[in-house]
Design a binder for these strands. Structure first.
Lengths: 205, 205
DNA sequence: TTATTAATTGTCAAATGTGACAATTAAATT
DNA sequence: AATTTAATTGTCACATTTGACAATTAATAA
């Protein structure tokens, strides 16, 4: 019955601006003022639409997680019937597919989760879905693999994926991209030779 | 000729307090006031001995890097003549050897390096020494291995090591410790079967 | 045109973090 | 005891960030 609400769009713009700010200034350095400026709004408007700083971070987390889940849905939808692990590595490590800003935001949120109970639980659940999905993808290529070893490989691949961009501040992301992918490939290779798995106690023979 | 200086001890205490604060409040959250309180000093004294915030971070980085190098020296000094890779994994992934606070501080510094040129260069050099050392240790067990593949394995192991504690905010460090080590072991295993290396183009045969 | 709802602007106070510096106290030397 | 050097304390001003709220403007329905 009255002036139409722009809450949806504005919230969208603000959260996008927040993401950009995190990439530039870091999470702590992303003040309401800077977010507002990046969004082309007044600080008061940021508060008006999204709330205080706490709300802002929480909503950003929800948004990022939502986007992540959506992207994974698409990714999983196009999963090829065979050679899924190569498809996985392409998606994770190919430069044209990766989004450093996105990974940086995720990293910032994980970092912040260390001092925020609500956020921590959110990120924990997200991380679990992520690892479970990777495990499921690998499972398709290795239906007979042991659960534990598959979990280890998944964790390894995810570590390599995250570290690639968490070390990005060292401006060596591109230098590490190739070895990161090669390491991930090697991890998967260890699934291809069932007889070679776990010879831990016969190393020196 | 006059009152003796406590600069050395005080600096030491302050930097230790700084480390503890980072573990509790994060790097940005570690204000001079909190550091001072943690060290049992007045804020003015922190400034007096170590300088402003910039100096504080820089000196912490130098200190941490120095300690890291010292620890590695010891670690390398006790390197066994054979089975060095197992020795390496024990040192990196065994709970009793690892120091979460230390890794957290390093992570914070790497993070901060994204927006600090001087710090970035320091951390880049440190990271290079770290990877080179790991490579050298592996080299002892695999003297004939290719440089590139060894580099990839090293990067993989370091990623696993870092990620273990950078995901610590998710309070799952202990859950991931076992898979992390197993993944690292598997990475090394790929060095043990030279004939299996890089069969990338014959996967489906 | 009026009423209504929401966007938008602007401003103030409180809290926090920091830099600078004066003033005082303590421990050594001569 | 006097001097010297440094530790220690205390305080002030300035800038930043934030929360709260009043005042105004804009867009829609009746």
């Amino acid at each position: 019955m009255a002036r139409p609400s722009k809450k949806e769009e504005r919230t969208e713009e603000i959260l996008q601006a927040f993401r950009r700010c995190i990439a530039i200034y870091g999470l702590e350095g992303s003040t309401l003022e800077r977010i507002a400026e990046e969004a082309g709004l007044k600080r008061s408007l940021v508060r008006h639409f999204v709330g205080n700083r706490e709300d802002l971070v929480e909503k950003l987390a929800e948004r990022v997680i939502k986007e992540s889940d959506a992207q994974w849905s698409i990714f999983l939808a196009y999963l090829p019937p065979t050679d899924t692990s190569t498809y996985l590595l392409d998606g994770l490590f190919d430069k044209q597919h990766s989004d450093p800003e996105y990974v940086l935001v995720i990293e910032s949120l994980i970092f912040a989760a260390g001092r925020d109970d609500v956020l921590r639980e959110k990120m924990q659940r997200w991380m679990k879905r992520f690892t479970d999905d990777v495990t499921a993808i690998l499972r398709q290529d290795f239906p007979l693999a042991d659960d534990n070893e598959l979990a280890a490989i998944s964790f390894g691949i995810i570590s390599l994926y995250f570290n690639l961009d968490s070390l990005a501040p060292l401006a060596m992301s591109d230098i590490y991209r190739q070895p990161a992918r090669e390491a991930a490939e090697r991890l998967i290779q260890t699934l291809k030779q069932p007889t070679l798995i776990r010879p831990a106690h016969s190393q020196t023979h």
